[in-house]
């Protein structure tokens, strides 16, 4: 009785459905792996010139060396082998590559957020800037900025800058736009009544900023930081593509696609997904903590 009520409670919330959908995705993944790998496996078995059963075929599709679609347990095994069994300093370790990508993501995200906030403060306080620069900031969102990533890498390399910095430049570039747009909105969010109140206190511009505009922009800052950190990770991964695939998750994707190592591609993808989810969650937790500290709740 009790267990059934637990199940109904689970299914009524979001946890149950999410688990069911996740299981369905994994099941679909297995089915897909079977059908996508079957033609090749059938051919290979036929070449071996022995009678084979369905279970042989199934066995083979699930454990192909270079499958079209690796099965989930292959990816899981690869991730386990490259994280737990390899030393984190070895360049075959997924942790090593994830760290390379994560460090340039974080550096780029910090620089991008700082730049975005500074730009937003300038735009909010200067009418000229707000009328001349702001339309460009908005228009620049419609431009596929990621396309210039390879150029930035090569150009910076030609003037002697390599390694972490050029990649984080791309992350910076990608992540400062959402922060600027969000912060301009946030810094303008205070009610005119509150601004008038500050005036009656004869508050200086700096006081208005620190005591009214800055606090009221916090929800906007965190909302745009969530977007910014996700896009900073994309920037870091794409930034690793043209460097000749030295290190990082982007390099893993590229070498995987060169040498047909699908299992490696999928494990790099999963690692990227885990990093993205973790980063966004951390920003979300910080958001809740700051808002709670300020006496606001979502």
């Amino acid at each position: 009785m009790k267990s059934s009520s637990l199940i109904t409670r689970l299914m009524a919330g979001t946890t149950g459905p999410v688990i069911v959908v996740c299981l369905a995705i994994i099941a679909l993944w297995y089915v897909g792996a079977f059908f996508l790998n079957a033609p090749f496996a059938r051919e290979a078995l036929a070449r071996a010139d022995e009678a084979y059963t369905f279970s042989d075929l199934l066995q083979r599709t699930m454990n192909e060396e270079r499958p079209v679609l690796p099965s989930p347990h292959q990816v899981a095994r690869e991730i386990y082998e490259t994280t737990v069994l390899k030393k984190p300093t070895s360049n075959r370790s997924l942790i090593f590559h994830s760290w390379v990508t994560l460090s340039s993501t974080l550096l780029g995200f910090l620089m991008g957020t700082a730049l975005g906030i500074v730009l937003a403060v300038a735009i909010v306080h200067s009418r000229t800037l707000s009328r001349s620069l702001m339309p460009w900031v908005i228009a620049s969102q419609t431009i596929p900025i990621l396309a210039i990533a390879p150029m930035i890498i090569v150009v910076l390399a030609s003037i002697g800058l390599t390694g972490l910095f050029p990649k984080s430049i791309i992350s910076t570039y990608l992540s400062f736009f959402p922060v600027t747009v969000g912060m301009v909105k946030g810094l303008r969010a205070p009610d005119p009544i509150h601004l008038d109140l500050m005036r009656t206190y004869s508050a200086s511009q700096a006081q208005v900023f620190w005591k009214l505009r800055w606090p009221s922009s916090m929800p906007y800052l965190f909302a745009s930081m969530k977007v910014a950190i996700a896009i900073a990770l994309v920037g870091a991964i794409v930034g690793e593509l043209p460097t000749g695939a030295v290190a990082g998750l982007g390099a893993r994707l590229l070498t995987g696609s060169y040498y047909g190592q699908t299992v490696q591609i999928w494990s790099a993808l999963i690692a990227a997904a885990v990093i993205a989810a973790t980063l966004v969650t951390i920003v979300g937790i910080a958001n809740r903590a700051v808002l709670a500290r300020m006496g606001q709740s979502e």
């Binding site: 979001t14 999410v18 996700a230 990770l233 591609i265 790099a268 993205a276």
Partner: peptide
Amino acid sequence: LRRGLLPIGNLVSALPIVGIAPI
């Protein structure tokens, strides 16, 4: 389906999907 798909959809929106390009 909505309760199950929506959180996953929100999560996936934040993932670096361009990574599936080689696949």
